[in-house]
Design a protein around this nucleic acid. Sequence first.
DNA 1: GATGAATGAGTTTTCATTCAT
DNA 2: GATGAATGAAAACTCATTCAT
Lengths: 219, 219, 219, 219
Amino acid sequence: MDSDDDIEQVSTRGRPVGDREAKRKELLRAASMVIAQEGYANASLRKVAKHAGYTTGAVTYYFANKEELVVALMESAFDRFDAMLESARERGDILAPFESWIRLTDRSTRFWPATSELLAQGRHEPAFAEVIARRYARYRRLLAAIVKDAQERGTVRNDISADILTDQLVAMGDGWMMMYPIEPKRFTPKRMRALIDALAVLVAPVPGEQKPGGRAARA
Amino acid sequence: MDSDDDIEQVSTRGRPVGDREAKRKELLRAASMVIAQEGYANASLRKVAKHAGYTTGAVTYYFANKEELVVALMESAFDRFDAMLESARERGDILAPFESWIRLTDRSTRFWPATSELLAQGRHEPAFAEVIARRYARYRRLLAAIVKDAQERGTVRNDISADILTDQLVAMGDGWMMMYPIEPKRFTPKRMRALIDALAVLVAPVPGEQKPGGRAARA
Amino acid sequence: MDSDDDIEQVSTRGRPVGDREAKRKELLRAASMVIAQEGYANASLRKVAKHAGYTTGAVTYYFANKEELVVALMESAFDRFDAMLESARERGDILAPFESWIRLTDRSTRFWPATSELLAQGRHEPAFAEVIARRYARYRRLLAAIVKDAQERGTVRNDISADILTDQLVAMGDGWMMMYPIEPKRFTPKRMRALIDALAVLVAPVPGEQKPGGRAARA
Amino acid sequence: MDSDDDIEQVSTRGRPVGDREAKRKELLRAASMVIAQEGYANASLRKVAKHAGYTTGAVTYYFANKEELVVALMESAFDRFDAMLESARERGDILAPFESWIRLTDRSTRFWPATSELLAQGRHEPAFAEVIARRYARYRRLLAAIVKDAQERGTVRNDISADILTDQLVAMGDGWMMMYPIEPKRFTPKRMRALIDALAVLVAPVPGEQKPGGRAARA
DNA sequence: GATGAATGAGTTTTCATTCAT
DNA sequence: GATGAATGAAAACTCATTCAT
């Protein structure tokens, strides 16, 4: 404010403006790595702080409490998820999210492992449950829209309502997400390829089906 | 199934032999209730002891440590699961496990919540992971056999290999199991009925499909 | 239980039965000393534990939490208070509690100092407030009965209702209790003697007052 | 009373001189509100800063440390107190401070709660004790002078020395001040009226008393 | 003058585990 | 066999204070 050379002031001299958000992100990153490695239950603020190179107090300075930290973490995870869905919608491909999922398991070792634990925790932390309910609803809504589109274009079977079919796809994704961290060896790229291909077969239009309507009758 | 010295367990001749096993079971029962109610993270041995009407020391007397207790709990949960599968096999109905699942959510409010948290916990304790891997493999093997049977009888589509189709069914079940405790309100009986009916449609034989083989082609 | 010499078993051999209460008292004693010396705000469970020669965990073993410890402490303080009142009632002497108070300040350096801080804390800990309200009501009720008796016997002025007069006496006692720990030097035995003697004068029957009724008119 | 450079305080010539004092006052005001609402123990400098709309650093900028802030707060509380006494002296009415007290409980919900906690705190911080001792002595001195005057005018009993009688009045006031925040419901306006009226009766001249001297004999 | 990020020691509380009895 | 007292390390969180800017 009272310094004389304002050039290059950001992040080197003077009060670092807007640094707060950056620091929060840094901590979130550390948190997601710690949770990915050690699990939610074993992830203490101490460990997060240490991992980020801060003291414990610093963490609670940026996040009022653990809950707030984890909620922020969840939101950011869902943000990434939404981005994936967005590109899926653009391509009009139902299976795109699953394809993305394959790529994520390949690269990022820290995105998925935490997720299922965080979800499981939602049962006891109302704040978590709120985030989950809200963002999951959005996720299902988006995917359902894509499914409906595909049904109308005739690339997806329409004897099951988009709504229900979406729930099934989502459940399958959740199931894989849950098991992947526990038995990563089972999920080889080849196996995942086969699973997704089979999924394509499952949702493919049935020969001799009519365009509109959704008829769900027990076999 | 539990042990073979169930006979003469009552205190007639000398020390009751099956007593130990019975008390362990009581403790396991208490443990699953505590976990269902308070969550895995908040389930301390003290609470389990109190819930079972035992002393603190008794828990560590009957189980060397917490890990042993939880492993035993997991095994017993999978035992129940296997029983469900067994009846499915008898009826030759792929969807029977899902039907059982509906009934479990109706009655026992304590089975699934504990289970999904226990699974989520598997990532960090190798002992847990071992149990999960072993019992899940068995679960998939059993279900795959049922699927294969059904395919051969022509009641299930055979354009997807039994193995892969099983994985998809299992994943779907896992996904629902995971979400049910978090958003129970979404899983109304009516909704679950619709989901399972749609599942039947999904796996139903496709008109004009040949008997053998499994062809997986992208739509 | 399975030992063979039961004599002198208590507190030397075998499971110490009933020791729990004794240990709790020991901890309460330590707590009251720590609070007396360092004040309520600075009295941590750590310090209490150390003072009693226990670990921190032991304190929370005997008292579920700090609140429970302090509530127990308050109750025991009021118990002593009640005993004082009881003897006052037997002697029919209104000022007896004040006399006892003098003796307490002389001997016990740990009884009073804590009290006013504990009372002040009552505003924020509902559990404390409950104890205070309940026990104070009892204290006032007992003292009021003594006052009424004395009024009827003609040894105390009866132009002020027993109820109101009691409130005034109690307030005076509270006021001294509050200030004594802060300015102990002001409360010399001689001074306290004078204050109590003056109190006797204040409550003495007014010359020419009639026996029954209570007339309170502004001078 | 505050400072002598109140003139030209507004930013007309150079830096506003009285600014510092004004900001300190604002912070003190915030502090007393926070203490009144949350209690002394829970009143952190952070909360005070937030309440006043200042930054954390500002508090430690205007007050070297917490002690200094609290001491200033005490002094300002006693300033208010003195003002009350001053008007009492003008009216020559002993009970005036008590009347003022009633009015304060009616209006300002924040003055007394903070005060009694502040006093209770005096035992541990020598700096606090010093303020209390000094200002209380002044308070007693002022009230004693009023009492003495009243005794000489014959409106207050003179069989108890002004000094002692003052101590009793002060103690009574302290006792009420201490209990009021804890059990506010007991102190209805009607009840307080009755208590003060009875106080008037208590200190009223005794029929047939001689003018000078103070005779204190046990009843 | 004033800020607010960061510290580090402190608090209460929880808990699996040990072990003398 | 079984108890329950006691431990000690860990957790989340609070806060007065410091200090570079």
